[in-house]
Design a binder for these strands. Structure first.
Length: 209
DNA sequence: CTGAGGATAGTCT
DNA sequence: GACTATCCTCAGA
């Protein structure tokens, strides 16, 4: 297996500097970590979507660079965080600098800091208790549970500080019996492209095919 | 389970 | 000022 995948090892620039679909598939089972003043949260990535640099009108960079999508044109391994409907979504930039492709993190299975995630999600949903299965099921919920907002737009995820991603764990690999491929959620353009990937046996996936 | 409605930053006219 | 959007929640069937 590629050294990219080593469990507990920080994913470096080379991991992200590859074809966006390949990176998307390889991110399944990896560990997203967020270190904040409130504490540490982490979880296994179970669902992602790819946004292509070419021929993909659903990509925010489809019509060229703007202030909003600037991070997508930056180096691979940086975060692209953008606001939507009063919430945020986290993408990971892939392929060489100047090529605006990215992977949307759509759902995570929490493994560390679960109590902190419960507090954050509860606070954001009108003090209603949030089921553990729903803590990070959906891209905006991921950002709420992990306290990711616009301040992290452009952040270098290979720095190993504040927020980063580690290679696939053995436990996740065992669970990763198969990957399901479907069309992307919530996009109206290029709605037929098979660019959503999730772990088939994870109950933390946002929507099943 | 599905569908309607809330809600806000960025972009365009 | 109007329109769009990589969504979420909840009411109703």
């Amino acid at each position: 297996m590629s050294p990219f995948y080593a469990a507990g090892i920080l994913l470096g620039r080379a991991f992200y500097n590859r074809d966006v679909v390949q990176v998307a598939r390889d991110l399944l089972g990896c560990l997203l970590v967020r270190d904040s003043r409130e504490g540490l949260t982490a979880g296994i990535i179970v669902e992602v979507e790819a946004y292509l640099a070419q021929g993909d009108p659903a990509n925010h960079a489809f019509r060229g660079p703007t202030r909003k999508n600037a991070s997508m044109f930056g180096p691979p391994g940086h975060a692209y965080v953008y606001p939507i409907h009063s919430r945020f979504c986290l993408n990971v930039v892939t392929e060489p600098e100047g090529v605006p492709s990215a992977v949307l993190i759509r759902a995570i299975e929490p493994t560390e800091g679960i109590e902190l995630m419960r507090r954050r999600r509860k606070a954001r949903s009108g003090s209603q208790e949030v089921a553990d299965l729903d803590l990070a099921r959906g891209p905006a919920r991921v950002c709420e549970a992990f306290a990711i907002d616009r301040a992290l737009d452009g952040w270098d995820l290979t720095s190993g500080r504040v927020s980063w991603i580690e290679g696939r764990s053995d436990a996740a690999a065992r669970h990763n019996s198969s990957v399901v491929v479907t069309t992307r959620v919530g996009v109206t353009a290029a709605a037929d492209l098979p660019l959503r990937f999730y772990l088939s046996d994870s109950p933390f996936v946002s929507r099943r095919a």
